[in-house]
């Protein structure tokens, strides 16, 4: 078992990075790895409520985020600085996430075995 941290740095839907990142996160968790997620920069927008990706020809992979608990993915960090930059509040997000300073996220990177950025 390894501790894998998946970082979402790119916005959802415009590219497949976010979707393929989440696919990998869920698959890793189902293979009994200890998976954590970090959302930073435009990647933060993955967590917004009331998205309608199907209207622009994209799969609604966002709704899968509601199932993170079923996969035992309990650690979800969002970058505090990015929250400020995009003028978002915690209640704008669709899942509970820990708003974390850059130092807290850096400490999390130290703690895990591998970090993969999407």
């Amino acid at each position: 078992m390894k501790k894998l941290c998946i970082v979402f740095k790119q916005a959802p839907h415009g590219t497949a990075h976010g979707r393929e990142g989440l696919d990998f996160a869920l698959l890793s968790a189902s293979f009994e790895q200890e998976v954590s997620l970090v959302f930073t920069g435009e990647g933060l927008l993955t967590l917004l409520k009331e998205q309608d990706p199907e209207s622009i020809g994209c799969k609604d992979y966002i709704s899968t985020l509601g199932a993170l608990g079923l996969y035992d993915i309990d650690t979800v960090l969002v970058c505090q600085e990015s929250m400020h930059e995009f003028n978002l509040q915690q209640n704008d997000l669709r899942i509970p996430a820990l708003v974390s300073s850059a130092e807290e996220i850096a400490a999390h990177f130290d703690h895990v075995d591998e970090v993969m950025v999407f």
């Binding site: 698959l27 890793s28 993969m116």
Partner: peptide, 18 residues
């Protein structure tokens, strides 16, 4: 292969480079 092969490969390896 499936993504499972990536996961099991990461588990077996000392280091992942993307």
């Amino acid at each position: 292969g499936g993504l499972g092969e990536l996961v099991s490969g990461i588990e077996k390896s000392d280091k992942l480079i993307c």
